[in-house]
Simulated scan of single mutants.
Amino acid sequence: MNVTISGHHLEVTPSLREYVLTKLDRVTRHFDQVVDITVLLSVEKQKEKERRQKAEVNVHVKGKDIFVETAHEDLYAAIDQLMDKLDRQVCRHKDRVQDHHHDSLKRQDSAWDAAQ
């Protein structure tokens, strides 16, 4: 798994990098077929009173790319919200991938005939 953490108008400190990596462990624990993860942390200075911290992640899994972004006044809170959203999307993708194993029509018909 390839993890890239970068900052835009922001220096990514070792403590911030470690925080993101510990949060990403939850996602990789649910779904182990992750190929590549790119995290971008940025600061938008639209107004000085309203500094918005923005976090976005792009996860490349087998067959699909998952993109999530959040914004908050606190960067750590933005990362928490980001990982919650990402966790839900990864679990939903995992359920969709695993849900394609249905019984064949022959087995359904024979089971239906046996029931009658």
Rank of each mutant, 00 (worst) to 15 (best):
V43I: 10
H9G: 04
Y19W: 01
I79Q: 02
L105F: 10
K94H: 02
V12A: 01
R107P: 03
T38I: 09
Y19D: 00
Q46K: 15
T22Y: 08
Q116W: 09
R26K: 15
K45Y: 14
K62F: 10
S6A: 11
H60F: 07
C91F: 03
N2L: 13
V97G: 03
S104D: 15
R26Y: 10
V34L: 11
H72E: 10
V90D: 01
T70I: 03
L10T: 11
N58A: 14
D32S: 14
D65T: 13
D99S: 04
D74W: 05
Q98V: 07
G63S: 12
E73F: 11
C91V: 06
E69C: 04
D84G: 10
M1I: 04
L82C: 02
L82I: 02
L16M: 08
K47C: 05
G63N: 07
T13H: 02
L24K: 03
K47H: 12
S110M: 11
R88H: 09
H72C: 06
K54W: 05
A71S: 09
V20F: 00
S42W: 10
V12Y: 01
K85F: 08
L10Y: 11
Q89C: 07
F67R: 11
H101L: 08
Y76N: 08
S42L: 09
Q46M: 10
P14T: 01
P14C: 00
V35H: 08
N58E: 13
K49I: 09
L82V: 03
A114Q: 10
D25A: 13
S42I: 12
K94A: 00
I5Q: 00
K85V: 05
K54E: 13
R107A: 08
K64F: 06
R92P: 00
D80W: 01
V61K: 04
Q89L: 15
H102Q: 07
H93N: 12
E56H: 10
L75Q: 07
H9T: 05
V57S: 01
R17L: 00
V27D: 05
K45R: 14
K106S: 12
D95F: 01
E48K: 14
I5V: 01
V3Y: 04
L40A: 12
R51A: 14
T22F: 07
D65R: 13
Q98I: 07
V35D: 13
Q81M: 14
I79L: 04
M83P: 02
A71Q: 15
L82A: 02
R17E: 00
T28Y: 06
L75Y: 08
I79A: 03
K106F: 09
